[in-house]
């Protein structure tokens, strides 16, 4: 039996050995625990990379945990960070609800929590120290405003909604509807979930283009770039010209949609900046120096369309 147990011990030791090497350097380094949602898109990967690289650059020890889209995993991770005694916890929450207890626990342990990407609903103020990130409702509004300014006040809109019930999907829908509310000529005539993926986006768009209302659709609003990229393929296969017959607006700002905009197959993307690493560690270092930290940091975000995208812009982007 011993022999077989050693089979188990070996990989476990391998797992911990790299950790051991890191610990030897001295104990004065700042430790930050970071609970990331997952690795579901290029956007998310860019966000993770930005934080990891910035931590390495500044000599901060980062404890990274991937929650694979599950809130329960994020709660476990935060509790594990508290048990380990990290200095600061960074959290990119997968939903806005359900964080009260664990944030109180962190407060009881005197560990500040910094939110990234998304705010949370809590019962009292002061459960989190700082919030870094844009707001998805505002992105929806920006998309709506771009539409009014660049396309006009008459259009039939098809909407590709993100994962039903997820924060960005709800907020981007809300913001967009707010922005176009004052224009009776702008109507959302089709709305269906594309689950934030290219394949679903394409499949749903194919059906939009076969509906009796197909000739009225001249704008597509997709809650993220991936669904828009799938839809572009569906539009081309239907013999229409994406970007011309149907104006395409989406959110996030990944490299591939920039290429499409440059090629004239898409029209606009509302940036949602994932490169929050520098902002995060500025706040962390401020806190470690004992200074007060700002309650809100807004990363720089743009709206991109054919006017401000060039090959240089694309080459300069890392995701």
């Amino acid at each position: 039996m011993k022999k077989y147990l050693s089979l188990l011990i070996l990989p476990l030791l391998l797992l911990v050995s790299c950790k051991k090497a890191a610990e030897g350097e001295g104990s004065k380094t700042i430790t930050v625990g970071f609970s990331q949602i997952g690795a579901e898109s290029d956007w998310r990967k860019a966000s993770t990379l930005s934080i990891k690289e910035e931590a390495k650059k500044r000599g901060i020890e980062l404890k990274f945990s991937d929650a694979q889209q599950k809130q329960e995993n994020q709660l476990k991770a935060i509790r594990a960070f508290i048990a380990q005694g990290v200095d600061v916890i960074a959290l990119a929450p997968v939903v806005t609800t359900g964080w009260d207890d664990v944030l109180k626990e962190a407060r009881a342990a005197n560990i500040p929590v910094i939110l990234i990407d998304r705010r949370v609903d809590v019962s009292e103020d002061g459960l989190y120290a700082c919030y870094i990130g844009a707001d998805c409702t505002e992105e929806g509004r920006k998309a709506g405003r771009w539409l009014i300014e660049n396309v006009g006040k008459q259009a039939g809109i098809a909407e590709l909604v993100g994962t039903v019930g997820s924060g960005p999907a709800v907020e981007r829908k809300k913001g967009f509807e707010e922005a176009i509310k004052g224009e009776p000529g702008l109507k959302i005539i089709k709305s269906q979930s594309g689950d934030f993926t290219r394949s679903q986006g394409k499949e749903v768009m194919e059906q939009f283009l076969k509906s009796p209302e197909r000739d009225q659709i001249n704008v597509l609003y997709a809650h993220n770039d991936d669904m828009a990229l799938g839809a572009i393929q569906a539009i081309e296969e239907a013999g229409k010209k994406p970007g011309k017959d149907i104006v395409i607006i989406s959110c996030d700002g990944v490299k591939e949609i920039f290429r499409q905009i440059l090629a004239g197959k898409a029209n606009c993307t509302v940036e949602c900046n994932p490169m929050v690493g520098p902002y995060l560690f500025d706040v962390v270092e401020t806190y470690m120096r004992g200074e007060t930290i700002p309650p809100r940091v807004i990363p720089h975000e743009d709206v991109f369309d054919a006017k401000n995208i060039t090959q240089e812009v694309i080459d300069g982007r890392s995701y």
């Binding site: 690795a39 579901e40 898109s41 689950d195 993926t197 394949s199 393929q233």
Partner: peptide
């Protein structure tokens, strides 16, 4: 089939 249909490999969702 899926990968070729959407002209990309999406390891997370395929």
């Amino acid at each position: 089939v899926v990968c070729s249909n959407i002209k990309c490999a999406d390891a997370n969702h395929a």
